[in-house]
Design a binder for these strands. Sequence first.
DNA 1: GCGCTGACTAAGCGCTTGCTCAGCATGGTG
DNA 2: CACCATGCTGAGCAAGCGCTTAGTCAGCGC
Lengths: 209, 209
Amino acid sequence: MTSTPIADLWPAPPGGTDSRPEAAYRLLQAAVESFAERGFHATTTRDIATAAGMSPAALYIHYPSKAALLAEISQAGHAATLALVRRAAAGEEEPAERMRRLVEEFSAWHARGRMVGRVVNYELHALPEDAYAVVAALRLDIEREVSALIEEGVAAGAFTVSEVRTAARAVTSLGIDVSRWYTDRSTETPEELGRRYGELVLRMLGARV
Amino acid sequence: MTSTPIADLWPAPPGGTDSRPEAAYRLLQAAVESFAERGFHATTTRDIATAAGMSPAALYIHYPSKAALLAEISQAGHAATLALVRRAAAGEEEPAERMRRLVEEFSAWHARGRMVGRVVNYELHALPEDAYAVVAALRLDIEREVSALIEEGVAAGAFTVSEVRTAARAVTSLGIDVSRWYTDRSTETPEELGRRYGELVLRMLGARV
DNA sequence: GCGCTGACTAAGCGCTTGCTCAGCATGGTG
DNA sequence: CACCATGCTGAGCAAGCGCTTAGTCAGCGC
């Protein structure tokens, strides 16, 4: 149940003697896996601390609360996803080619990082209000980025869609839902899945084949 | 936050003097809404009982446990969804037409019954093991039904897909995820959404336009 | 040696949880 | 009337929760 974890979201802990960030990193990792598998409310601080190899009290030296752990995971995860989407949408190629890459990477990310993906997409309701506000803004940005790319493609005559918002919903929806159903036992690699989903989405948007 | 609730999943309570099933129905309704909004583990038996207009102890006259409430909701919800899918897939029309209706109704159902949909799709991990086994079988049946219809369409030359399993995943995925994002404030009606998603899916499957 | 710091633990506090139980009002039946 | 089943409540129990507190101990500058 590992998946590729938060290694690409947080800087790797330094190999040096400094043990502070390494312990905090272990807690984050343990929290991601517990929250993803059992959900925030079914996870106890004892679960997280034990999985990180320390006593329950040690958690509070690195994070002020269980909710703060969730907030950090959710914000970093959303920020990474938005960055991925922006990178793909801002390329130099034709809109269709950029959309293909966007869907490929978005889907593969949700397969590879399904643990983070589950926390990011399905534990929103457990966020403290202020953290939720930050995250909601990031989600809006992601959707806007996808909508803008579709609109650009429609204007260029590369896509044919009747409702841009609905189409954008469908595109992000497909990717997000990957984190729900993808498992270790899936025979498709994240990259294969990305390529196939890229094809499906281009057809969905009425792109020339 | 009501959505169309479980009225189509359980027989309506008799209007007569008999209050037993009516009270159990109120509990189910309250449980669906609490589980959907806060999640199973964040919902207390006091929440459910209070929302149903009774004391916490009264819950246990109608259901043996909190988990039994979840199990009933999940099993009935899955059974209703499978029935919907079977009805659409078993028609007399061409595969493409049946697929259009399947997606239309599947998507509209997940928008209209998003509360039940959320419990059904996102609270699986909280199910007791035996109830989970039942539900997992129903989910497999749903996916098989969709796969079979795609295969039929491919054989008839109506669809063009490279990987049937991946395409089937995408079709069900789109519908399931509706229950995550659809809200009271959505401007699309469930029926509009269904029609648009039906179009998108047909294009995705390479059906003749 | 000394004093200090920072990561950590054992113990446990106050509170909430799922669930139980004795008892009460109601109403149909002899 | 007595009898009892039914649907429910008020009070509360044992267990588990997030988080705190007091204290231990290795490492380090002096």
